[in-house]
Each structure stands twice: as structure tokens, then as C-alpha cells.
């Protein structure tokens, strides 16, 4: 008859059996292995303590006493199974797989796109937020800082900080700054800094120049684009242009050429028909 192996006949045999019985009810494999390893370590410590306190004990006796002190493996197994619910383990594993897949997809896709793969990419118009209330980020195109911020240039007639905001369709539309300049030849040019912002980045609003109606208190109407004033070569002098954008905002510069020197107020109405919103700019509130 073949001799039984050491594992089946030795002291480890009953220890293994006890551990297997204790963790059998834990259905999530990684948990079962971790708990088994923990129990095994605990039993080993206990056996070592018994051997130290009672040097005369054999390995077999120390193990039997340690196991007896641990209690009934089947009962412990039931309690462990109750504590270690499998769905939590499976959910954890699923969350790991999902995260890994998304990481691989996002990083892989972006690396393949190069600069365009990241928010804003290499687009100089991109800014995370309009922190300075001016077109573009500071340091990128500082020309607009000279336009809007008070300076000592005699051609800067006045600067405005109307800081007007209206909420429409869940979006904020703001008229933040303005500046009136006098160009060579005496024409007055008004610059207005407009912003649309919303936390709903997927439906962030946009302004359309075609829907702007601009009038002053003297009855003048100011057209934009092709309907506005032009240079001798046909260049457009008045326009609404995007100047800086981010996931939660769009910034615009409204440039109006040929402002009536006698005008005291300017009204902006926006909408395809009628007015969705309007802003009034009071020149008397500005200060050069």
C-alpha cells in the first residue's frame, strides 16, 4: 500500500481542512484567498505561542489546541460568508475593469490625437475659465487688456464695467466690460466683452451676430458684419467675434464702429424675433 504523503498525514492536513471548511462559504475568490491567508497566519501565530509557552507540546498537539481555540470551522464559515457578500466583490472587480478600459481608451485615443487629444489642445483660444473677465488668458493677447482696462492713452475715451448678467434658458449671459476709443479720423469704436456661461458644458450657449439689434438713445441703429460699416476695401468694421472659450464659457468681443458722439446710452437686444434678452450700456457711467 502506498504511503500517504506528508501533507495528508502530517499536522498541515487537519489545518488545511479546517481552513478550507472555514472559508468555503466565501464565494468571491479573491476574498476567500485573502481570508484564508489571514486565518492561516493567525493560526500559525497561535501555534507558535503555544509552543513557546508549553515547550513540551508536539506540533500535532499545539495545532490541535490552536484549532480547538478557534472554534467550529463550519460555524465560523457561516459567519464569514455572511460578512463577505459576493456581489460587493464582483462589483469591485467590475469597477476595476471599467476603469481600466476607460483609461486605456482615453489615454490611447488621446495619444493618437496628439495635441488635439486634450481639452483645448493647442488652441490658443482655449482657457479653462474666464478668470480675468477679459478676452483670452492674460499673457496670450494682452492687446485686449489695453483696450478694456483704464490706461493713459488719450484715444481711450472711457472704460466701463457694467457687469450685467441675465439668466436665460439655464445659461448666464453677461456684459462684463466695455471701452470706447477714438480711432484715427475721429471715428468712435466701442468694444464690449460678452460671456455666455453654464455648467452644462454639453449645451453651452452661443451668441449669433445676426440676432443682435443695437440701437442708441438718438435713434441710430448699428449693423454688424455685412450689414455694418466697411472699410474702403470691403473689410468689416463692426462684428461679434468669439474671443476665448472653455468647457463652461464662451467669450465674445462686440466691436461697434462709428458710435454717435452724442449718444449717451446703447441698447443691445438679442433674439431671432423680439428680444430674448437686452442690455443697456450707459456711457455716462464710464470713466476714462
Amino acid at each position: 500500500m502506498k504511503e500517504k504523503s506528508d501533507r495528508e498525514t502530517g499536522p498541515e492536513f487537519s489545518l488545511d481542512q479546517w481552513l478550507d471548511t472555514a472559508v468555503r462559504g466565501i464565494r468571491f475568490g479573491p476574498d476567500r484567498r485573502a481570508v484564508r491567508a489571514e486565518l492561516y497566519g493567525h493560526l500559525e501565530d497561535k501555534i507558535a505561542d503555544l509552543r513557546r509557552i508549553f515547550p513540551d507540546l508536539t506540533d500535532q498537539e499545539a495545532q490541535e489546541r490552536a484549532l480547538a481555540g478557534m472554534g467550529d470551522a463550519a460555524e465560523i464559515g457561516k459567519q464569514l460568508a455572511r460578512v463577505h457578500r459576493p456581489w460587493l466583490g464582483y462589483l469591485w472587480r467590475v469597477s476595476q475593469v471599467l476603469l481600466a478600459l476607460c483609461l486605456v481608451w482615453y489615454l490611447g485615443f488621446n495619444i493618437s490625437l496628439g495635441d488635439d487629444g486634450w481639452p483645448g489642445g493647442d488652441d490658443s483660444d482655449f482657457e479653462w475659465w474666464d478668470f480675468d473677465g477679459l478676452p483670452y488668458d492674460a499673457g496670450l493677447i494682452d492687446w485686449y487688456r489695453e483696450i478694456y482696462l483704464p490706461g493713459d492713452d488719450p484715444d481711450q475715451l472711457l472704460t466701463l464695467s457694467p457687469d450685467l448678467t441675465t439668466r436665460i434658458g439655464g445659461q448666464n449671459v453677461s456684459l462684463l466690460r466695455g471701452a470706447l476709443w477714438e480711432e484715427d479720423g475721429g471715428a468712435r469704436v466701442l468694444y464690449l466683452h460678452l460671456r455666455v456661461d453654464s455648467w452644462k458644458f454639453w449645451e453651452l450657449g452661443e451668441l449669433e451676430g445676426d440676432w443682435l439689434t443695437i440701437t442708441d438713445d438718438r435713434g441710430n441703429t448699428y449693423g454688424l458684419g455685412l450689414e455694418g460699416p466697411k472699410t474702403e476695401l470691403g473689410g468689416l468694421l463692426s462684428s461679434l467675434s468669439g474671443r476665448g472659450y472653455g468647457p463652461f464659457h464662451h467669450c465674445y468681443v462686440l466691436k461697434l464702429w462709428g458710435i454717435d458722439p452724442e449718444a449717451e446710452r446703447l441698447r443691445l437686444d438679442y433674439g431671432p424675433v423680439g428680444s430674448l434678452f437686452s442690455f443697456t450700456v450707459d456711457f455716462e457711467e464710464g470713466a476714462a
Partner: peptide, 12 residues
């Protein structure tokens, strides 16, 4: 973290 990445991918 998955939701954040999915949002970024959706945005792209």
C-alpha cells in the same frame, strides 16, 4: 473615476 473618464470621452 470611470464616470469622469467617460465624461471626458463624451466631450471629445
Amino acid at each position: 473615476a470611470t464616470l469622469l473618464l467617460l465624461t471626458l470621452i463624451w466631450g471629445q
